[in-house]
């Protein structure tokens, strides 16, 4: 059993939790993820490691409520226990001194991008951060990102905070202003459409772009093949070969279709889970 030590509510649908998991905290690195299962009936869901504290033995997760399991998790409180919590899974993000790196976090993707930005800056990079969300209420960790990056740009889709525009708009402006030859790498993490849009922009400039894919998963150890995706014409398992990939090589259409395959079932599961007490819908 894994204890929830702290919970922070960023918005009605975006929440943070610190989970006591010393074994994971000891060895995890930025870019890796965990898989958790709330209870015996639960589904195994992957969430990126947003932060970690090796001394306290904790892992921070930030998640958006999109369906049954994330809603049930969101209804849990500090002091509650999660049945299963396994990690660190996946390969860590490759960190080296590239020079100028643009790091983009969209929506809930701000959380996983944070430790990567921090590591990149520590490795000597000039980290140009861009974070964005649909509106100002959904934005979080601006302060943490400001610290992790060398400079930070904030935008909202509806203009309710700082400025109006997508992260891609901001990115274009930056690349145009500084020259594409002065940017060594782009790392973009967020919802699939956002990562895809970022790749479309960077492709025009010929800027290498790393994305973190969120394929459907079951075991997360390379055993089932559920998470497979075509990258550069080859089949890769996101859970062990990734989750980071060269965004220009990813077959986005395939990824998004595979992600939608269980939509009907997900809907049924969510509807059954009507009550918000965390009991799992009275089962």
């Amino acid at each position: 059993m894994y204890k929830i030590l702290r919970k922070e509510v960023f918005s009605p649908i975006i929440k943070l939790m610190d989970i006591e998991a010393p074994k994971v905290a000891k060895s995890c690195r930025s870019g890796q993820f965990i898989i958790l299962r709330i209870d015996d009936q639960g589904e195994r869901i992957p969430l990126t490691i947003a932060d970690y504290d090796r001394e306290r033995g904790t892992i921070t997760i930030v998640f958006q409520e999109v369906g049954k399991t994330t809603e049930q998790l969101g209804a849990m409180e500090a002091g509650d226990y999660i049945k299963d919590f396994v990690g660190p899974l996946g390969e860590p993000t490759h960190i080296e001194n590239y020079g100028n790196v643009i790091v983009v976090g969209g929506g809930v993707g701000i959380a996983p991008v944070h430790p990567i930005a921090r590591d990149l800056k520590e490795a000597g990079n000039n980290v140009i951060g861009i974070i964005g969300s649909r509106n100002g209420d959904l934005l979080f960790w601006e302060d943490k990102m400001r610290k992790a990056c060398s400079e930070l740009h904030v935008t909202t889709d509806d203009g309710s905070y700082v400025r109006k525009g997508f992260v891609t708009d901001v990115m274009k402006e930056i690349v145009e202003a500084r020259g594409k030859e002065n940017i060594a790498l782009v790392i973009a993490i967020g919802p699939q459409p956002m990562m895809r849009a970022c790749c479309n922009v960077t492709k025009e400039y010929g800027l290498k772009t790393i994305v973190s894919l969120n394929a459907l998963m079951v075991d997360g150890t390379g055993m089932c093949g559920c998470c497979r995706v075509s990258v550069g014409g080859e089949t890769k398992f996101v859970c062990v070969d990734g989750p980071d990939f060269d965004g220009h090589q990813v077959d986005w259409a395939e990824l998004s279709k595979r992600g939608a395959y269980f939509r009907e079932e997900e809907q049924r599961s969510k509807e059954k889970h009507t009550c918000k007490c965390g009991c799992g819908g009275g089962k």
Partner: peptide
Amino acid sequence: LFPQCDTPIK
């Protein structure tokens, strides 16, 4: 046992 258990199969 879906939806008593959360993991679907199609």
